[in-house]
Simulated scan of single mutants.
Amino acid sequence: MSNLMLIIRLRGSAGSPWFIEETLRNLRLSRVFNAMLYPDTSPLKGMLIKVQPYVTWGEPSDEVLSMLLSKLKPKGKTIEEALKSVGVENTSNLKQAIVEGKIKLHELDDTFSLPLRLHPPRGGFKGSVKRPFKDEGEFGYRGQKINELVKRMI
């Protein structure tokens, strides 16, 4: 699953510079607790370094990816019609197509309402959202531990 990155916005925009807000808009993370899946590329890593104090990211597991895709809400159609318009039969085929890179989640705008909206984590954050993950905080790269956070947010 290392070719996908799950990015979650943790902090609001009060007091943030304009270039941070612009980068968060480009990542399609306009609100707190919005999440998006992107392929792991060099330009994406540069954007993540720029907005690091406002987001957390890591590689999602198969289980978490299935849970996130089950939260997709179609725009004005049934879920079956929306999946057929994308060219897949069910959500497991959609997950497989996203993992293989045939379909990119951020390109499904006309079919599904994106970005994914998550709840605040049950039990709260374990550290401060103003400190990096490696220093017992919450923001920044967290690798496979993103799965624990997402399970508490769904």
Rank of each mutant, 00 (worst) to 15 (best):
M153C: 09
H106A: 08
W18G: 15
F133L: 06
R31N: 14
L69G: 00
Q96H: 14
P132L: 10
P53Y: 01
E89I: 10
R11Y: 11
S113C: 09
A97R: 03
V55I: 07
E100S: 12
S61C: 05
I8S: 08
M67Y: 04
V150Y: 03
S30Q: 14
L4I: 07
Q96N: 14
K75L: 08
S30V: 14
K104A: 07
L65P: 01
S16T: 15
K102W: 06
S128I: 07
T56A: 03
F19H: 13
Y54R: 09
P74Q: 02
V86I: 09
L24A: 09
R11F: 07
L37W: 05
L114K: 01
I98P: 01
P74N: 04
K75F: 04
K134L: 12
L83K: 03
I154C: 09
R31G: 13
I98D: 00
R9I: 09
P115D: 03
I98A: 00
P43G: 04
M67K: 12
P39I: 10
A82W: 02
I103Y: 04
I98V: 08
T41Q: 08
A14S: 15
E80Y: 10
T111L: 03
G123Q: 00
F112Y: 05
R152L: 06
I7N: 10
V86T: 06
E107N: 08
T91H: 12
R142E: 05
P17M: 11
